[in-house]
């Protein structure tokens, strides 16, 4: 069976690209790491791929707002390629800085609908790296989270507080929410940034475009988990990999 091709795009300051490519490889895709300039110049075309990912990092240093400059490149220089890609049924994943880019480029929550929500500095005012508990929104259309109810993932960001103005609240399709271990309303640090309705990730109406602050590519083997040394329970778990496997499965069936 031919492996689906995944384009992992990077800009100056992107830094989670290698492990993202590795996760796609483990999941059965054929990943390519491509500098955004090569896509803009036309040397590499989105036409040849079925998965498009924007990994984490600090694109252009996050100068002028997290993901802002790269978002402008997507919106103004890759617009037609992206529209063709999305319309043909391609899947899009943005993790951390990639989520910030998707939001600012107007690909989420409504593809090509302009920027409607934002990701603001964490309520704590700090960059934070920690593992969080996430619950998957029941009945959401997202293709990436099929088969998972809840999972643990690492977050590492300074600007992850989802801000949703009243006029767009109805358009939001939540996929992942920060959760507490006992099911009560999550407060800091269970919700590490103070997001709107504790939302950690959201998708478009089709379920094929997902943006999330946590890093699924940082949990592709059991020993990634912070408690793997505690007991044998974690010997099989590598829940982050499911996101990538689901994307590959979807691309294979499409």
């Amino acid at each position: 069976m031919k492996k689906p091709r995944a384009l992992i795009i990077r800009a100056p300051g992107t830094n989670c690209d290698v492990e993202a490519a590795y996760a796609f490889e483990l999941a059965g895709a054929e990943p390519s790491l491509v500098h955004i300039n090569r896509t803009i110049s036309g040397q590499v075309s989105l036409r040849d791929y079925s998965i498009f990912m924007i990994p984490g990092g600090f694109s252009y240093g996050d100068d002028l707002g997290a993901g802002k400059v790269m978002a402008n490149e997507l919106e103004r220089r890759l617009h037609d390629q992206l529209m063709e890609f999305v319309n043909r049924g391609g899947v899009v994943l943005g993790v951390c800085n990639g989520f910030q880019v998707l939001v600012r480029a107007g690909l989420l929550p409504v593809p090509f609908g302009g920027q409607r929500v934002s990701l603001l500095p964490n309520e704590s005012g700090r960059f934070e790296c920690r593992w969080v508990r996430l619950s998957v929104e029941p009945g959401n259309p997202c293709i990436f989270t099929r088969g998972i109810d809840s999972l643990d993932l690492a977050v590492a960001h300074g600007e992850g507080r989802l801000y949703v103005p009243a006029w767009t609240a109805a358009e939001i399709v939540p996929v992942l929410r920060y959760a507490s271990s006992d099911g009560s309303e999550p407060v800091y640090p269970d919700d590490p940034n103070g997001s709107f309705e504790h939302i950690a990730g959201l998708c478009d109406a089709s379920g094929r475009i997902l943006g999330l602050m946590p890093h699924p590519e940082r949990f592709v083997r059991s020993s990634h988990h912070p408690r793997w040394t505690a007991v044998g329970d974690f010997s099989q778990a590598s829940d982050g990999l499911i996101f990538f496997k689901n994307a590959v499965d979807f691309a294979l069936r499409a």
């Binding site: 989670c16 492990e19 590795y22 960059f127 590492a156 890093h215 592709v220 020993s223 990634h224």
Partner: peptide
């Protein structure tokens, strides 16, 4: 916590451990 200790996906034992 203000340093990213997970980037590169290489972490096995983190600076903070335990339950």
């Amino acid at each position: 916590r203000q340093y990213d200790h997970e980037v590169q996906g290489s972490s096995v034992l983190k600076p903070l451990v335990g339950r």
